[in-house]
């Protein structure tokens, strides 16, 4: 559990970090909170020749609100975002997700950008970011580039960042009237999820309406979090779907990703995700329903 030899650099701001990254590109890794990368280096799975430590880049840690948009710097600690009152008010899905995204000591050190850019298969925040359609800001030698969530999260440990780019921040358009759920199954409350589901939707106005502005994503269905278009479409037309309906939509989503939904592992995940969705929806309905 000791890393292979590496050089260490500690830039003072994001631009310095990008300069270093440009100089070392393929040989370098960025160190954010270190809660995934450091264990990977200790296992010698990750063997960067140069480690660029972003922890002195104060310009990358911030939470800004502008109208119905939230913008969060990549080096903001997970625990800081989780406890931020503006985040809780404007985008409670982030709060819900981060509350159980690993134990508190890990969230104290871990950063939101680190979790997104590392793109670990069971990273809770990736699931939420995909559901929220966040915009990711990549900073490279030629300046800032915006990447949509659907283009950013490609596969496990693979993102839309170029080797000379770093994730500087991400922003969320917080849509009015939306309610959120994040539910997962793991071996303990803050554990890595076997299955997780993020939901964002505006509740139906009456029992005969569907949900609007629906977004849904899941962890555990593929090597990285995925959106669930069939479930989204289904919820858009039904206020209180049956478990059988949800199962069918999730199975269709699995099938569309090229998996056999009747194989044991997908079948378990569909079953578990069905329960998570069906148990989340009642809490998202307005109090007193439509009576």
């Amino acid at each position: 559990m000791k890393p292979a030899p590496f050089q260490y650099a500690r830039p003072a701001n994001a631009q310095e970090a990008v300069d270093l990254l440009q100089r070392h590109t393929d040989m370098a890794r960025l160190l954010a909170g270190g809660q995934s990368l450091v264990p990977m280096m200790n296992f010698r799975i990750a063997r960067p020749e140069v480690l660029i430590d972003l922890n002195a880049c104060g310009d990358m840690a911030f939470i800004e609100r502008a109208g119905d948009h939230l913008r969060i710097g990549a080096m903001t600690r997970q625990r800081v975002v989780e406890q931020d009152p503006h985040v809780r008010e404007m985008c409670p899905l982030l709060t819900l997700t981060l509350e159980n995204a690993g134990p508190v000591p890990v969230r104290n050190r871990g950063t939101v950008g680190g979790m997104l850019a590392n793109c670990y298969p069971t990273a809770d925040l990736v699931c939420a970011a995909l559901c929220l359609d966040v915009q990711l800001e990549a900073l490279g030698p030629s300046g800032t580039r915006k990447i949509s969530a659907s283009e950013f999260f490609i596969a496990e440990f693979t993102t839309g960042l170029e080797p000379d780019e770093l994730l500087f921040a991400f922003s969320i358009h917080c849509k009015a009237g939306r309610r959120y759920a994040y539910e997962k199954i793991s071996d303990h409350a803050a554990g890595a999820p076997a299955v997780a589901v993020a939901l964002a939707a505006v509740p139906p106005k009456s029992a005969s309406d569907g949900w609007t502005d629906v977004a849904a994503s899941a962890l555990g269905f593929d090597s990285v979090a995925i959106r669930l278009p069939e479930l989204e479409q289904g919820l858009s037309s039904t206020s209180e779907p049956s478990a059988a309906q949800v199962t069918q939509w999730l199975a269709d989503d699995m099938t569309n990703r090229g998996f056999d939904p009747t194989a044991p592992d997908p079948a378990y995940k569909i079953r578990a995700a069905t329960a998570l969705v069906c148990r989340s929806l009642p809490a998202l309905l307005p109090a007193g329903r439509w009576s």
Partner: peptide
């Protein structure tokens, strides 16, 4: 474990 039990139940 949960997948084993869920498999039996299913």
């Amino acid at each position: 474990d949960p997948p084993t039990l869920a498999g039996m139940i299913r």
